[in-house]
Computed example of a mutant assay.
Amino acid sequence: MSVRVSLVAAARSSALLAERFEDDRPLDHAGWHEIQLTAHTLLPLGAAELRYCSPTPRSRATGEALGFAPMAQPALRDCDMGRWRGWTLAEVAAREPAAVDAWLADPRSAPHGGEPLLAFISRIGGWLDTRPACDGFIVAVAEPAVVRAALVYALKAPPATYWNVDVRPLSRVTLTGAPGRWSLSLEAASG
Rank of each mutant, 00 (worst) to 15 (best):
A48R: 07
V146N: 02
D129Y: 02
A145Y: 00
G126V: 01
R168H: 12
P116T: 00
H33K: 12
G191Y: 01
A133M: 12
R12L: 05
L184P: 04
V152N: 03
A150V: 05
P111K: 13
V100G: 11
S14Q: 10
V5I: 15
V152G: 10
E49D: 15
D129G: 03
L42N: 07
S122D: 13
E34K: 12
V167M: 08
P107M: 01
W163F: 07
T88V: 06
A11H: 08
K156Q: 14
P179M: 06
R95H: 12
G125F: 02
R20Y: 05
A39E: 06
F68K: 08
V167W: 02
D166G: 08
A119R: 10
L151N: 03
A90V: 08
D129C: 03
R181V: 09
E143G: 07
L170P: 01
S185P: 00
A110M: 01
A102C: 11
R77N: 02
R172M: 08
R12Q: 15
A18V: 01
G114Q: 10
L118G: 06
R85L: 06
R58W: 09
I35D: 05
V141G: 07
M71V: 13
R4N: 09
E19I: 03
G177E: 07
Y153D: 01
A178Q: 15
E91R: 15
L42Y: 03
